[in-house]
């Protein structure tokens, strides 16, 4: 059904729909700066909290560092993933979205890309701060693939789940409860892969990037197919 609609529209029109939807989210975000600020500040705060909670000496940083970094990123990102939906629900614009003459999957991909941008922004700030705070040498290039695949996976599941969480009594509080168990493979994958890239002797040498790729492919597809069911009134 979605496929037929895409075929009718042609790729250019589809891309234009996507861009328009995304631009709406990005523009709203730029004006309010709600989510991005909270996400950034919270991620940095978690990094600092780890320093108080754990004795993060230089010797253990190679083993523990990737976990510290990604936990901070994930916690911070989860804060923001729900925001785009909370705003839409509060403003009552969700119905408008559903009635718009756009392909259903475009709604999903637009939100997905917007969330990915948010997470990328968080990482862009968190990684250098992490490297500075804990005096860790971080080579950005090997991390790029890991970061991209990790973001895609988290955002794929997070976008779908935040659409559902927004409609529950607990609102955004439900999102981490839904998100964290399902994204365990991503967390394991990115932490291990980051460890391998940054020279953690204890990291397991397994095809983590393939695992992440498989997860991403599976969940982006699932998300695209089931998203409209989450949005229906």
């Amino acid at each position: 059904m979605t496929g037929a609609l895409t075929a009718d529209l042609g790729w250019r029109a589809y891309a234009r729909q996507l861009y328009a939807l995304m631009a709406k989210d990005v523009i709203v975000e730029r004006r309010t700066k709600d989510a991005i600020t909270a996400m950034l500040v919270f991620s940095l705060l978690v990094l600092v909290t780890f320093n108080f909670a754990l004795d993060l000496r230089a010797e253990i940083m190679p083993a523990v560092g990737p976990g510290v970094l990604w936990t901070a990123v994930v916690l911070g990102s989860t804060l923001g993933l729900g925001r785009t939906f909370a705003v839409e629900r509060d403003q009552g614009t969700l119905d408008g979205l559903l009635m718009a003459p756009v392909d259903r999957s475009a709604l999903y991909f637009a939100k997905l890309l917007a969330n990915m941008l948010l997470m990328a922004a968080v990482l862009l700030v968190s990684v250098p701060v992490y490297a500075a705070l804990f005096n860790v040498a971080v080579r950005p290039l090997p991390l790029l693939a890991i970061v991209v695949l990790g973001i895609v996976g988290f955002a794929a599941v997070g976008t779908l789940f935040s659409a559902m969480a927004a409609h529950t009594r607990a609102r955004e509080v439900m999102l981490p409860i839904l998100l964290f168990p399902v994204t365990v493979p991503i967390l394991i994958g990115v932490v291990q892969a980051t460890g391998l890239a940054l020279g953690n002797p204890a990291a397991r040498d397994m095809p983590w990037l393939s695992l992440l790729l498989g997860f991403d492919a599976m969940y982006v597809s699932l998300g695209a197919v089931t998203f409209e069911h989450a949005l229906e009134e």
């Binding site: 399902v182 365990v184 493979p185 394991i188 291990q192 397991r204 699932l222």
Partner: peptide, 18 residues
């Protein structure tokens, strides 16, 4: 229900490798 069950083998592999 769908997303959760599909995840199970992936979780299993990732934990096993870990």
């Amino acid at each position: 229900g769908i997303v959760g069950f599909v995840d199970v083998p992936i979780v299993h592999f990732s934990v096993q490798w870990w």
